[in-house]
């Protein structure tokens, strides 16, 4: 995100456009650079985290039965994490283009994920299915679940509530994140193509 906003705020994007005026190409090159740039960082962080966890369990002699399936699952989670990170980078680049300032884009993310999603999740529990947080978890962890209270009046006039589990599949999580990435990218592309560059 800051990679894009820095170019916009310094005016370097104007210089680039005098060399390559096809804005669509310029936009997708920025998105691709953001997506590719984030991958080694996330891969390294995941390797350190997984290696650290393995080392800690091994040191305490609590490693248990590590099979090929364990490694396969670990690799699968890592792969999905990389895909999610690439998508997040694309959304970050789109937000950078739309809002032009890193602080504004970061503020937007903090308000959306940290405040809005908490408020919405608490006020209308059923909507948790459509929160970014829920879908990221569903994608990276191979599915997730949330609970809602189903309350009905009883004979005494009180309420009887029952917690019901709602599942969110990995497929839904993946499609949701893909949708968010595509919509944010296309919106940013339209704005970038039409915007005057100062």
């Amino acid at each position: 995100m800051s990679f894009v906003t820095a170019e916009i705020s310094t005016g370097a994007i104007g210089l680039w456009l005098t060399f390559e005026p096809r804005r669509q190409r310029v936009y997708w090159s920025k998105v691709a650079a953001a997506m590719l740039g984030v991958l080694p960082v996330v891969a390294l962080a995941y390797a350190i985290m997984a290696g650290g966890a393995y080392g800690a369990f091994a040191l305490n002699d609590r490693l248990g039965n590590v099979t090929g399936e364990t490694w396969s699952e670990l690799a699968s989670v890592g792969g999905r994490l990389l895909v999610a990170s690439a998508g997040t980078a694309a959304v970050g680049a789109a937000l950078g283009v739309l809002l032009k300032h890193a602080a504004a884009a970061l503020g937007f993310l903090v308000v959306w994920v940290g405040v809005l999603e908490n408020v919405v999740g608490a006020a209308v529990p059923e909507l948790q299915r459509w929160l970014v947080r829920t879908n990221v978890t569903a994608w990276t962890e191979g599915g997730t679940a949330f609970w809602i209270n189903d309350c009905t009046p009883d004979e005494t006039g009180g309420m009887v509530c029952e917690s019901i589990e709602r599942a969110v599949t990995q497929t839904q999580g993946g499609l949701f994140l893909l949708g968010v990435t595509v919509v944010a990218s296309l919106l940013a592309l339209v704005v970038f193509r039409r915007r005057d560059v100062s």
Partner: peptide, 22 residues
């Protein structure tokens, strides 16, 4: 700007102050 890509290779420009990566 419609056909700018066809001619941009023949144009070099500096608009106001130069902008490079510091």
């Amino acid at each position: 700007p419609r056909h700018l890509p066809d001619v941009v290779g023949r144009v070099g420009a500096i608009v106001e102050s130069p902008k490079f990566f510091p």
